[in-house]
Simulated scan of single mutants.
Amino acid sequence: MLWIGLFALVVAVGCAYLARAAHLRARAMESTEAVSAAELRALRTAAVEAGSAGYFRYRCELTGQAAPHKNGALRSELEGLECVWHRHRITRKYEETYRDGKGNRRRRTRTETMSEHSSPTAFFVQDATGRTVVRPGGAEVVGAEKVLDRFDPHQGGGGGRLRIGPVSLDLGRREGTIGFQREEWIVRPGSRFYVHGEAADADGRLAVTAPAEGGVFVMSVKSEAELLRGENTRVAGFGVAAGLAAVGGCVALVLALVG
């Protein structure tokens, strides 16, 4: 009973943390000014004229359509689809032998991520007044279109290496492989796009990216209203879970101490 109580309290702390994180994201989006591409350029121009070129920092959010950067559209790594952003994940499913608490040999199925990558290439968010560069870094895009979700049984062979499209995986001495799950997400040119982050010109070029000193950075094909509904739902859900787990944990600890 003691361990059950302690575990429940750990769960309560975790749920409380997730509820607080969702609350902070929601409040950050609600309190940040939405600007157009032209308004953002005007703010940066005023900063340059005031002698602050290279030091411009402005928390903002923009809405428009995703458009390829100057070098043209990208191609997703697994499906080869035209996009402005892509992400993939390849997961290995395998069986392994282990010994249980009584020393008996047993088999279990597990997974490990073999390859995961998000494109860091900059692209534009374009509205009626112009376009703004967005630098995604390694961040994900909320609601990105999932264009691949397939499991392929492992056929063996390959000499310790497996090639899936342009991705080469080093299997090494891994044994018991059942197969590989392939997943890929993209943002197509022309998709509705929302970004919440920090506009800066540290390298002399204006772009929106993750805040340099930490903070909320959100890229999404969903609208701000949809994102806020989701965050508020998470706040309520995790908050209730945290409260129930805390009460249950305290009850279990009391029973363990008086039992």
Rank of each mutant, 00 (worst) to 15 (best):
L2M: 07
W3D: 08
L6D: 05
A8N: 09
V10W: 03
V11R: 10
V13Q: 15
G14K: 01
Y17L: 10
Y17R: 09
L18T: 08
A19W: 02
A21K: 11
A21Q: 12
A21S: 12
L24K: 12
R25T: 09
R27C: 00
A28M: 00
M29C: 14
S31I: 02
S36G: 00
L40F: 08
R41C: 05
R44D: 05
V48C: 10
G51I: 02
G54I: 02
G54M: 02
Y58H: 14
C60N: 03
E61F: 11
G64D: 03
Q65D: 09
A66M: 02
P68H: 04
K70W: 15
K70F: 15
G72D: 13
G72F: 13
L74Y: 00
R75G: 00
S76K: 08
E77T: 01
G80M: 06
G80V: 04
G80A: 06
L81W: 05
C83F: 02
C83Y: 04
H86W: 15
H88I: 00
K93H: 15
T97R: 13
G101D: 15
K102S: 13
R107C: 06
R110D: 10
R110Y: 03
T113F: 08
E116P: 06
H117R: 05
H117W: 06
S119Q: 10
F123Q: 05
F124W: 11
V125L: 12
Q126R: 15
Q126K: 14
D127L: 06
A128Y: 04
A128S: 07
A128G: 02
V133P: 00
V134Q: 06
G138T: 14
A139M: 13
A139H: 14
V141G: 01
V142E: 15
E145M: 09
K146V: 07
V147P: 03
D149V: 08
H154V: 04
G156D: 13
G156N: 13
R163M: 00
R163V: 04
G165P: 06
L171W: 08
G172H: 11
R173F: 13
R173C: 07
R174Y: 12
R174D: 14
R182H: 08
R182L: 12
I186C: 00
I186H: 00
V187Y: 12
R188D: 10
G190V: 05
S191P: 06
R192S: 10
V195Y: 08
G197C: 00
R205Y: 15
L206R: 03
T209F: 01
A212P: 07
A212C: 05
G215R: 07
G215P: 05
V216R: 11
S220A: 13
V221P: 00
K222W: 13
A225D: 03
G230D: 09
F238I: 09
G239V: 03
G249K: 08
C250V: 15
V251W: 12
L253K: 09
L255T: 12
L257S: 15
G259D: 14
G259V: 11
